[in-house]
Design a protein around this nucleic acid. Sequence first.
DNA 1: CGCTTTCTTGAGCATTCACTCTAATTTGAA
DNA 2: TTCAAATTAGAGTGAATGCTCAAGAAAGCG
Lengths: 188, 188
Amino acid sequence: MRNRAGLETRQKILDATRSLLSERGLEGTTVKAVCDRASVRAGSFYNLFDSKEQVVMAVMREAIQAVDPDPEGTGDVGVGDLIEAYISYLGNDPALARVYLLVAINGSLTDEDTARRIARHHADRTDRFVAAMRHDRPELAATEIVARVEALLAALNGYTMQALLDPSFDFAAHARRLLTMEPAGDGA
Amino acid sequence: MRNRAGLETRQKILDATRSLLSERGLEGTTVKAVCDRASVRAGSFYNLFDSKEQVVMAVMREAIQAVDPDPEGTGDVGVGDLIEAYISYLGNDPALARVYLLVAINGSLTDEDTARRIARHHADRTDRFVAAMRHDRPELAATEIVARVEALLAALNGYTMQALLDPSFDFAAHARRLLTMEPAGDGA
DNA sequence: CGCTTTCTTGAGCATTCACTCTAATTTGAA
DNA sequence: TTCAAATTAGAGTGAATGCTCAAGAAAGCG
């Protein structure tokens, strides 16, 4: 093993970047702050990463990956399972969830690649939820399922945002309640 | 009228700041960029505003105000009216909506005052929607109404975020569809 | 032990940032 | 027309940013 030390430093930098992004946002996450928190000098940073942007993107990819723990191939997953997985993820590592929203909204304005990445992830997530709802409610029409999933995910994202803004917000309870909601057909 | 010129310049600066925030986000909105777009020199900027933060806050207050056009005192407003108002606002001036989300998520991390302002606005908006839903469905229990409004607003915010990320997203159609959704009581 | 590769250091670079200041210009009341 | 206040211009400040680089320390191989 030739570069163990380098890998350890790399991890320290990633950890520092993730926590800083979560605590202070994009603007507050400077290379100096990252280096200080990681106990590393600027030279080491640029020995392992080409730019600040590259680290931020690495953390964001980490966040995207984590948003929905991968049930890879499991066919009998319901919407409830996906929601529960998301709840526990957001409870265990709120930092990553914050980073996701932060970088999505900020990065998408300036960086086209980020915008595509986020869009792609959202499409994948929608597909996953659609499959889960088809498993739960095989009697529903395809378009109906998509519409419900879109509303569900929008609400989930809205609650995530709220949790980011207000730490005392009970995300789990609100998220679970979404499970009991469904279209009435003809509304008020 | 002693300071008409100053007022015009002030407006030019506010317009430039709003559009820049919407297009490039907080980081991309520099004082130089604002001055360039407003065709004004730095000296004029600081003659009218104390700091960059002050202009950003002014635009944000504008955005908060605009998010829900004020029906001030009108008692017979339904949820549908509020949603339609929001749709037309977001359609007519997407820049302000983007600014709102942007500053809410970024500013709340660093600035405590912004965080309070956003929280307060969210509470007010919730109250408005609760009143509207009470008008539509007087038979529902208070707690039930609050729960539905919370889900509705979360979905609305989620869709807003999506519209910000993807300009081709049909916000109006999705927002209107939320009107037809309601809890099933006992879900799947 | 020697020797190459990998890693770290930390001073320092160019650039950009928000912001200041003085002098000049414009404005509007008298 | 006069004059003072309001407004603007634009060079300039210091601090902070992302990033570079030459030199040395540490690590792993023979």
